[in-house]
Amino acid sequence: MRRVFAKDWWIWTVLPVMLIALYFDFVGSPNDAQLGASARILYFHIGSASVAGIAFTVTAIASIGYLIQRTVVWDIWAAASAEIGTVFTTMILVSGTIWGRVAWGAWWTWDPRLTATLILWIIFAGYLLLREWSDNFERRATYSAIIALIAYVDVPIDYMTIRWWRSIHPVIFTNQGINMPVSMQIPMFLSMGAMTLVFIVWMAVRMRLMRAELGVGDLKNAIRAHIEGQ
């Protein structure tokens, strides 16, 4: 245990960044003019959304990598990133519904962006189930790579929904600049940064665990082959 932490000392850099981000999220930024303190959930909402976008993009790239090269490392990247992306999508949906209740008085509306995000979440839940239920490694990796690439179509669409259609989501990032006061930009970007760091650390840990699982599986197969060979 101690050796693992010593080897990955950089993991600890996430702590101060998180603390600073939390300070600015809750203390070092002003209340929203209309919504008051409740608007602070936005920092988590946007942070999760950007990480989920990054995570699924990593999954898509790794899936292409797997289909071309067929090496285990791509599959591990894709799977770990999809798992974490799904968790962050859950966080988007949860923080979004809570905020929606406070700001608009409804937990859920069938707004284009909400719909697209929900579809994304269900598809990647299906992706994880597909992985869970397949026993053959090659099949699992190939099929899930194909599913991930089809599912990824939804990610740019989700990003563009509020630009193509009228939505309850304001467009913050525009061609003309960022549509938000600077005092709120600081905590927003800090949140994004901290959550991206969490993503990176989580990826490192999860991928190591997956490699270990595969290694154990290989060892078991080798032992089984040895016993049956006798």
Binding site: G126, Y127, L129, L130, W133, S134, D135
Partner: peptide
């Protein structure tokens, strides 16, 4: 084609078909 080769294929087919067909 994917689900035909999997153990719980029918279930996976349904799980994935529904969200993909929402649009």
């Amino acid at each position: 084609a994917i689900s035909a080769n999997l153990k719980s294929g029918e279930m996976i087919f349904t799980m994935l078909m529904f969200p993909f067909e929402i649009p």
